[in-house]
Amino acid sequence: MLLESKENLTIDKEEFKPLIVAFCCNWCSYAGADLAGTSRLNYPANIRIIKVPCSCRVNPNFVLRAFQNGADGVVIAGCHPGDCHYSTGNYFARRRLTLFTSLLNYIGIESERLKVDWISAAEANKFATVMNDVLEKVHKLGPNRKLRDVRWKR
C-alpha cells in the first residue's frame, strides 16, 4: 500500500517526458546517430531508435503501432534522396510518406508528431538538431492520446 502510494506520487510529480520512436535507416541516419553519439553531441535520451534497412522499409503499420503503444512522436529518417544504399528506396519512401503523413494529418494527428527527414551518416549535427526539434514540438503539444490503444499501459 505504502509502496503504491509512493509510486503514484512520483508519477504525479514527474514532468511529461515525451517518448519518441525514431526509425533510422541503417546506412545513413543510424550511422548519423552513431556519429552524434561518438561526437558527444547532445540529443535527448527519450528517443528510441529502431534500425531499419532502408527508409522504404518503414511500413505505415509500424508508425500506427508506435502511436498506439506509447509513442508521443515518430521520426522516420533516411538517406538524402539520391544517396540511398539501395539507390531508389527513399524515392519510393518519399512518395509514400508524403501521402501517408498527409493522410494522418487529415485524420487529426498533429503534423508535428510525425516527422520525416533525410539525415546522412556525416550529419551528426543535423541528427541532434532534428531530434531536439521534434522533442521540443512534441513537448509543447503534450502527451499524445490520439490513436492510443486503451489497453496500453506505460
Binding site: T88, Y91, F92, R94, K126
Partner: peptide, 20 residues
C-alpha cells in the same frame, strides 16, 4: 503512383542540410 517515382518529385521533408 506509388510504384513509381521521379527524381524531381515534390519533397515536403527536406529541411536544411547539416545541423547548427
Amino acid at each position: 503512383v506509388l510504384v513509381n517515382y521521379k527524381l524531381e518529385d515534390f519533397d515536403p521533408f527536406e529541411t536544411s542540410k547539416g545541423g547548427k
